[in-house]
Simulated scan of single mutants.
Amino acid sequence: MEVVILPGSKQIGKLAADAIEALLQRKPHAVLGLATGSSPVPVYDELAARHGRGLDFGAAHAFALDEYVGLAPGHRESYREVIMREFAGRVNIRTENVHTPDGAAADIPAECQAYEDTMKAAGGVDLQILGVGTDGHIGFNEPGSSLASRTRIKTLIEQTRRDNARFFGSLADVPHHVLTQGLGTILEARHVVLVATGAQKSRAVRDFVEGAVSAICPASVLQFHPHATVLVDEAAASSLRLADFYRHTYDHKPAWQGL
């Protein structure tokens, strides 16, 4: 796991976009994994700006991490709508190449399996963007999730619903259930780039980077990933015991190594 500490979200967005641009240049039909929430927004802003300067997404595919269950089609806070608004609608990726789980499916287990099958048929995720919750969840894999879990339905804990209430206007409007890629599914991405900013994420960052691998902190499973990159600002890095080591390592990284 590589930890990179940067001054702020703008620098994080640029570095993550560098990795995605390099991927698309060597593999135009790359498969991107997309997260929602506030953390990835600087990455999407930077990618949209680079598309304006010629970065081509025309052959790429994208898969969302998760989706709410029970929202009406076209609901502003459905994750398909969020991804279209924050990313896909700002670049030239084909709409039919943007995939999200169907939270309105009549047969939820069949939909979850179909989503896994579609990802596999596309060749698997090349680069997965992640955020992390204040309790260490990634995707909607809440504390206690199986480290080998696959795409499935999950019940949100109240902390996650409170964290997301700002998007809905009130806690009562936040759904209780979601479909989410499992931790085992996320681990199959060839490169994982997790973004975390702000002091409210510092404990979660410390726990999943330097703590024990445990279901109580789902993001800690990334310690098992062969190519996981963690991009954090100074506030999110404030609880890391080895922060100076991470800074030294990045400052002296061979230029040819990339992200």
Rank of each mutant, 00 (worst) to 15 (best):
A72S: 13
E116R: 14
H75D: 12
Q128H: 07
E86M: 05
D102I: 04
G89M: 00
A105P: 15
V91I: 13
P109E: 05
C112P: 00
Y115V: 13
T134W: 10
Y68T: 12
R53M: 04
A59D: 13
Y68L: 06
E86V: 04
R76C: 01
Q128N: 10
Y115A: 08
K120Y: 08
A110K: 15
Y79S: 01
R80H: 15
T95Q: 14
L55W: 01
A122S: 10
V132T: 10
R50F: 00
D107L: 09
G124N: 11
A110N: 08
H61W: 15
D56I: 02
H51R: 06
P109I: 15
Y115C: 10
A104F: 10
A106K: 13
A64V: 06
V132P: 02
P101K: 14
E77N: 14
M84S: 11
Q113R: 15
V132A: 04
H75P: 02
V132N: 03
Q128T: 12
D56N: 07
G133K: 11
A105Q: 08
C112Y: 02
M84L: 11
A104W: 14
M84Q: 14
S78M: 04
T134F: 05
H99N: 04
G124V: 11
A121K: 13
P109Y: 12
R50S: 00
Y68V: 06
H99Q: 12
A110W: 04
M84P: 00
A64M: 12
L65Y: 08
I108Y: 08
